[in-house]
Amino acid sequence: MWFMIELSDEAILCNEHVRLQENFERLWDLSDSPEEGAMFSGLGVGNASKLYFSPGTESFFRHVLDACGAKPCDPPTADEAGLLVGHDSARFALSGSKAES
């Protein structure tokens, strides 16, 4: 299951996205950098305040997702999200990617 956190303008001004990315990266590293766990940033107008988390994230980051009010979502498309933390292969999990076809 994919998850999405939508940050308020205030949260962005307070660098909440940076803290989330740093925490994600630390826990991802401590979990032996799982292939299926990745964090993506939203791209484009109306999507820049969103952070997306792939299904493999639940095993090591679920407590943070719950605390931040993350909501289940459909996989973002490659046009909607860019990889922040994870293996390059995680890009293929995005909806509409070449590997998914």
Rank of each mutant, 00 (worst) to 15 (best):
N15R: 15
D9G: 15
S33P: 00
A38M: 01
F3K: 11
I12A: 06
R26P: 02
S54T: 15
F24N: 00
S8H: 04
M1V: 14
A48M: 07
L83Y: 04
C68W: 02
G96C: 10
A48S: 13
V18R: 10
Y52H: 05
T57E: 07
F92Q: 15
L43Y: 03
S89Y: 01
D9A: 10
A67P: 04
S41V: 00
S49T: 12
A90R: 01
A38R: 00
D29Y: 00
A78K: 10
L94D: 04
S97I: 06
D66Q: 07
A67I: 05
G69N: 09
S54A: 15
R62K: 15
L94Y: 03
E22A: 09
D74C: 08
C14K: 12
A78C: 10
S49Q: 11
G82N: 04
N47A: 10
A81S: 09
A70W: 00
E16A: 13
A70L: 03
H87F: 01
L13F: 03
E16L: 07
W2G: 08
N47E: 13
P34M: 07
G82A: 12
R19L: 06
F53S: 09
F61L: 02
G42H: 04
G37K: 05
S54Q: 06
L30G: 03
C68L: 02
F24L: 10
G46S: 11
L30P: 04
I12K: 14
L30S: 12
H87N: 06
S89L: 06
E6C: 09
L7F: 14
F92A: 15
C68N: 05
E16Q: 14
N15H: 12
D79K: 08
S31E: 07
N23S: 13
L65R: 05
H63I: 11
A90I: 02
F92L: 14
G37V: 05
S54G: 03
M4I: 13
P76S: 06
G44F: 02
A81T: 04
F24A: 03
C14I: 13
M39Q: 03
F60H: 08
Q21M: 09
N15W: 12
F61Y: 08
I5T: 07
D66N: 07
S97W: 04
R19S: 14
L84F: 07
G82P: 03
L94T: 08
G69P: 07
V45R: 08
M1H: 14
